[in-house]
Design a protein around this nucleic acid. Structure first.
Length: 142
DNA sequence: GCCAACGTTGGC
DNA sequence: GCCAACGTTGGC
């Protein structure tokens, strides 16, 4: 089991929109960055991840899980670009902001701090559990 | 809206 | 294959 972080600008695709897709989930399309694509290729069904609002909100607002392995991005005209499908699992009871993450020494190595611009990031288990704890999630889905 | 960081492109 | 120019992302 691996952990990830998915960034989205809420005015383009928000957490509410993700939740509205329900159990069927949503193709995480639009990624045009090799590192982000490679992260998605490495994902397994059931991997968990954070849903992060960039630009506005600047916070981890929910937990998602991978529900389809990497496949061609339906919005791309080039088979180079692939993406997974993800579905909402639960809300973060208390959104964990970027400022919260930066202020926590235990998270100083997190990609969110170190590789700010990467849109699909790996998260370690320790980081996953720590952010869940900060967000008031007592029994984080694994 | 500004600008720093960083990935990509393209000339040589 | 180097590196300057350029475009995009995203925090502030």
């Amino acid at each position: 089991m691996a952990y990830w972080l998915f960034k989205s600008e809420p005015f383009k695709f928000s957490w509410d929109m993700q939740k509205a897709k329900g159990a069927a989930g949503q193709e995480w399309d639009g990624v045009r960055n090799y590192q982000a694509r490679n992260n998605m290729r490495a994902m397994q069904i059931g991997d968990k991840g954070f849903f992060y609002h960039s630009n506005e909100g600047l916070a981890v607002v929910g937990i998602v899980e991978v529900c389809a392995l990497a496949h061609p991005d339906s919005t791309a005209n080039n088979p180079t670009w692939e993406c997974v499908d993800i579905r909402a699992v639960c809300d973060m009871p208390k959104p964990v902001t970027l400022a919260d993450v930066k202020a926590n020494p235990a998270l100083s190595e997190m990609s969110l701090v170190k590789s700010m611009r990467l849109s699909v990031q790996p998260v370690t288990e320790d980081e996953y559990l720590e952010v869940c704890r900060m967000g008031g999630l007592d029994n984080p889905p694994k």
